[in-house]
């Protein structure tokens, strides 16, 4: 035993973990440094700047940034968002944003996807804000207080519902122009990125709600949340009420539907199982070698 306790820390190799986290952060910081005005050739690499990409989930590494835009791109996009309620997700908003950020009209060339980049940036930054509200803003505490519950009594589904509604409320200021954005997102070339972003949102909502399923429901839950959110977004664009009451009711109904469908599917599955077992039993009673 004494031997085990002595060797265990070495095998787990914990001391290296914080260091690796720090390393990831250090990389993120260097990639986000402002580009020098006249850079020396030694500091420049010939490869384009790529933000770290990770295809797996890790609780041990720092979270990847919500979007992969560089500093200059973020500056233009952030200032452009201020013009979105007035001008929509258009090239005009981008140009005005570039001017506000101290760039020229021509500098919108920094964004190869133009308007769609603005939409993606909006989606990604709102997703980041949602996470921030949960992690620092005490969103769940507020939701629990509204329902008159303790924060620990909130079920995963209640949390998911709260997060979807909170995310929809963030769209309230661009409600009038959001249909245009949805149209842009549904263009053939833009569909893959739009779906990726929708999945990222669904995944974030479920992770933040404390959903830790690792079986097949991992997929069905994300699919269900994506479907509910995407349809609620369309309803939201036509919701005339100031507090999105209709949208809220719509989301409630969809969650009930989901429950009904889930119950039905379980029922059908059970029925099919019984039928199968009966058929096998019947066959065996007839002497079939099953």
């Amino acid at each position: 035993m004494a031997y085990l306790t002595r060797t265990l820390p070495k095998r787990v190799f914990t001391p290296s973990l914080p260091q690796s986290i720090r390393q990831t952060r250090a990389i993120t910081i260097t990639t986000l440094q402002p580009t020098p005005t006249r850079p020396t050739q030694t500091t420049r690499t010939s490869k384009p700047r790529q933000l770290p990409q990770r295809t797996y989930h890790s609780a041990l590494h720092a979270r990847l940034p919500d979007h992969s835009y560089t500093n200059s791109q973020t500056a233009i996009l952030t200032s452009a968002l201020a013009h979105v309620p007035a001008h929509g997700f258009t090239a005009t908003a981008l140009t005005l944003g570039a001017r506000d950020a101290g760039f020229l009209d021509v500098s919108v060339q920094l964004l190869p996807r133009a308007e769609f980049d603005l939409i993606l940036f909006w989606l990604a930054s709102r997703r980041g804000l949602l996470r921030g509200q949960v992690e620092e803003g005490g969103l769940f505490r507020r939701i629990a207080a509204e329902k008159g519950k303790d924060i620990h009594e909130l079920s995963v589904e209640e949390r998911v519902r709260g997060l979807i509604l909170e995310r929809l409320r963030m769209n309230a200021e661009v409600k009038g122009v959001w249909q245009d954005a949805l149209a842009q997102m549904s263009l053939l070339a833009n569909i893959p990125l739009s779906l990726t972003e929708l999945h990222a949102l669904a995944s974030d909502i479920l992770t933040l709600s404390g959903d830790d399923a690792v079986d097949a429901t991992w997929y069905t839950r994300r699919l269900a949340v994506s479907a509910i959110y995407a349809s609620a977004e369309v309803v939201m664009t036509r919701d005339p009420t100031p507090d999105l009451v209709e949208t809220e009711a719509f989301v409630e109904r969809r969650f009930e539907d989901r429950k009904v469908i889930a119950d039905k599917l379980i029922g059908i599955g059970q029925c099919a199982g019984f039928g199968w077992n009966t058929a096998i039993g019947l066959g065996r009673s007839w002497g079939l070698k099953i």
Binding site: T35, R38, Q41, S46, P48, S72, L110, L111, P112
Partner: peptide, 18 residues
Amino acid sequence: FRGMIQKAGFMIPGQGFE
């Protein structure tokens, strides 16, 4: 060629070429 453009000091939008 993208590397040469970067070497001159330019920022590259996205992939850098189409």
